[in-house]
Design a protein around this nucleic acid. Structure first.
Length: 736
DNA sequence: AGCACGCCGACT
DNA sequence: GTCGGCGTGCTC
């Protein structure tokens, strides 16, 4: 790759990522320039020197080469934060296969929409009467734009700049004269508000127990040492947050800043409050509930050094702190840390790269670390710290029983509640305590099938079965297709079709029938879709307004309900059959977390795990809260079948509206892999139809390539990208 | 954001 | 004619 020209984005603050401009590189800068560097370039008709950032290099251009200007100089005064984020974007582009623009858009705070943020205002500096006099002068001169402006200005002393320029269509040239004459002035409203306000600050210094201070000291040594990533394994209730806070305090004392990533679903006020009590208004949060303006306010505050700690989901990773010292990723194993949109980055890997660029440290925390992270900790790639005792001694581990649903079936119980669970529910209700019923959602929402031919009613656009909704309609969860419940089977015409399987709604109906006097709350996509629905249900349950809470994943993430003493996991093993090599890991995590909700306070807790595979190691290990037991089983399985993290695996999703085209391209990729694999180190699986082989009339093929090392896979990925792709076929990479 | 260009009405 | 302001579009 030659570097004749540099791709430059001009002055981030104003034009953001809007456009890329190409500049010739002076020979003496050939070696020195790299992505992310700040340069000064001649721009526009007047060739005014402006700041720009290099985002890449090329040797060819569509633009008239004669018109291309040269870079004037490099700014050597340290790489500013934007440059560092651009370097990160370049890394993401390579690692996850997106365009540079896509990567930049996820990484750079888009400050374009300054509507609610720092507003520019035009303020009248003369009296209303003087203004009207001036107005009549310009009426006589028939200068329309200035008349419009003065009319508005005599009405209101303060005018928003954007309104003047856009609605009044008055260009800056028209009122520049007024600015020079002191008739009006341009002022900025510092409106960078903090979303956390009006809270009591109570800086009681956290006291750490022995295990916690050991972890802090160990991590602090790493911070003062090589700053390699660290994994903090701490069982539920061991007090990881206290460790994070003490570590953050020390990092801030060194004049650096910290980012705390929390899965969006677990980002509750309680969590934020704990940090706020310690660090006051030096903390800020970003989350999806914040408006674009509020969000960019927070990022701007971070950039200007007004805050030291940013708490937020995945995207908070890109907070433009000028001197980042620490990134903490809580619940490191969560799937929410993987982006679903291009670039499909993983927060853990990306955090590690950002810290490498910034000279900062990553701490991964979890009660159930991902097999990949634990493996790296075992191999010395990460430092490892553990906390194995509950911080609050009063709370004891709950008693756990596994119920074999096959036995229940044999003994004639075809319901979804085992007899043991019903008994315990009754006892719990009699004691006036609360119950949590957890339903593993994967592949479990009710669908409709024909009793004669066994065929399930499928979506006409996707390769999935339709789900029954409360209002009696059938819905596709992938493309949104809707249809009324048919009277006859669409494939054989038999009238005997019926709902099958169990969703949260059905569980709710059954619980209400069994315990008519109990208050029941349900939490799923339907009940939480409106704004605040999530928090409303949780706080209603926490306040004791209901006895039983039924829900999916979202009820088990980081919420404390002290009066819950019974947790029922209705079909613990269903996620085992969801396909994918991570099924066991997901199952273990879900059961462990759900079980951890019982007996969080002084009351003793019970957990009932109902399963069709009670002797599966994921279920058994979760029941005994034995992470290490689970891990060694799991890693053995991955070693046998050569799955990540033991092997590296590149997955390639190939999609097209026309099935044959997708299939043909998938075949060509396979041929390429076979032809290029001279050393025989690549292991190919597929191509085959994806688990969901069609979504919204787009056909999907998967191809997996496994290898001991990562580098050959990256080389192969680059070759695939350079292939002559059929324009009707799209592809996506994933490397694990 | 700033600069130039083309357009149009007003004034010498 | 030409001067000056207005609105628009482009900037490698």
């Amino acid at each position: 790759m030659s570097r004749q020209y540099a791709n430059v984005i001009i002055d981030i603050v104003h034009t953001a990522v809007d456009r890329v401009f190409q500049y010739e590189i002076p020979e003496e800068l050939w070696e020195e320039l790299s992505v992310g560097m700040k340069v000064r370039v001649p721009f526009g008709k007047g060739n005014r020197l402006r700041d720009g950032y290099i985002i890449g290099f090329t040797d060819k251009t569509d633009y008239d080469p004669l018109k291309i200007k040269r870079i004037a100089e490099v700014c050597r005064d340290g790489i500013p934060i934007e440059g560092q984020l651009i370097q990160l974007a370049a890394w993401m582009k390579e690692r996850y296969g997106s365009t540079m623009i896509q990567a930049l858009k996820t990484v750079l705070p888009v400050k374009r929409k300054m509507k609610t943020a720092e507003k520019k205002l035009l303020v009248r500096k003369i009296t209303e009467d003087e203004c009207r006099e001036l107005l009549s002068v310009y009426r006589r001169k028939k200068q329309k734009a200035r008349v419009r402006f003065l009319e508005a200005l005599s009405e209101d002393e303060v005018l928003p700049y954007e309104m003047v320029v856009q609605k009044l269509r008055v260009s800056s040239a028209s009122f520049r004269l007024f600015l020079e004459q002191g008739i009006c002035s341009l002022e900025t409203e510092a409106a960078l508000r903090n979303p956390i306000h009006g809270m009591e600050r109570n800086e009681s210094r956290v006291t750490l127990n022995g295990e916690q201070s050991q972890a802090v000291d160990g991590l602090w040594d790493v911070w003062n040492g090589d700053r390699c990533p660290s994994l903090l394994y701490g069982i539920t209730g061991s007090g990881k947050t206290e460790v994070y806070m003490e570590l953050i305090r020390r990092v801030i004392r060194e004049g650096k800043q910290a980012i705390v990533l929390i899965p969006e679903i677990a980002l509750t006020w309680q969590t934020v409050m704990r940090f706020y009590r310690q660090f006051g208004d030096r903390v800020s949060i970003v989350n999806s509930r914040l408006s674009a303006g509020e969000k960019s306010d927070q990022l701007e505050r971070a950039r200007r050094g007004k805050i030291d700690i940013m708490i937020g989901p995945r995207s908070a990773l890109f907070t433009p702190f000028p001197d980042l010292g620490l990134i903490i990723i809580d619940e490191e194993h969560e799937t929410a840390y993987k982006s679903e949109t291009v670039p499909r980055y993983h927060a853990v890997e990306t955090a590690i790269e950002r810290c490498r660029l910034a000279g900062a440290m990553v701490v991964l925390g979890s009660a159930t670390p991902s097999a990949a992270s634990y493996y790296k900790a075992q191999n010395g790639e990460y430092h490892y710290f553990q906390m194995k005792t509950r911080a609050r001694e009063a709370s004891s581990l709950p008693s756990v029983e596994i119920i074999d649903l096959r036995m229940e079936l044999k003994e004639g119980n075809r319901g979804i509640f085992s007899r043991r669970l019903v008994t315990l529910m009754k006892e719990t209700l009699d004691r006036g305590e609360q119950i949590l019923l957890f339903l593993n959602r994967r592949g479990y929402a009710g669908f409709v099938s024909c009793r004669s031919c066994g065929e399930a009613v499928k979506c006409p656009h996707c390769d999935v079965s339709l789900k029954v909704h409360r209002d009696g309609t059938l819905k596709c969860h992938y493309c949104g297709f809707e249809m009324p419940l048919p009277r006859k089977c669409p494939s054989c015409g038999s009238p005997y079709i019926a709902g099958f399987g169990t969703g949260t709604q059905k569980v709710e109906a059954m619980v209400r029938a069994m315990f008519p006097e109990a208050g029941v709350l349900r939490m799923d996509m339907d009940t939480t879709s409106r704004k605040g629905g999530h928090d409303a249900i949780l706080s209603a349950f926490a306040d004791g307004k209901a006895d039983i809470l039924i829900g999916t994943q979202m009820i088990v993430k980081g919420h404390d309900f002290p009066r819950v003493t019974l947790v029922g996991i209705l079909a613990a093993d269903l996620s085992l059959y969801s396909g994918g090599y991570e099924a066991g890991e997901r199952t273990f995590e879900l059961i462990t977390q759900a079980a951890g909700r019982a007996g969080r306070d002084v009351l003793p807790g019970h957990v009932v795990i109902q399963s069709y595979a009670p002797d599966n190691y994921s279920v058994e290990a979760a029941a005994s809260q034995d992470y290490e037991g689970f891990y060694w089983h799991e890693i053995l399985y991955r070693k046998l079948l050569r799955y990540p993290p033991v092997c590296k695996m590149l997955s390639l999703l190939i999609t097209s509206k026309e099935e044959e085209r997708a299939e043909k391209m998938a075949g060509r990729v396979k041929e390429l892999a076979e032809a290029e694999d001279r050393d025989g180190i690549l292991e190919l699986i597929g191509p085959a139809k994806a688990a969901v082989s069609r979504i919204n009339d787009v056909y999907r093929y998967m191809l997996y390539v496994k290898c001991e090392e990562e580098e050959p896979l990256l080389a192969f990925k680059r070759q695939v990208e350079e292939m002559d792709w059929d324009r009707q076929v799209l592809y996506q990479f994933d490397l694990e």
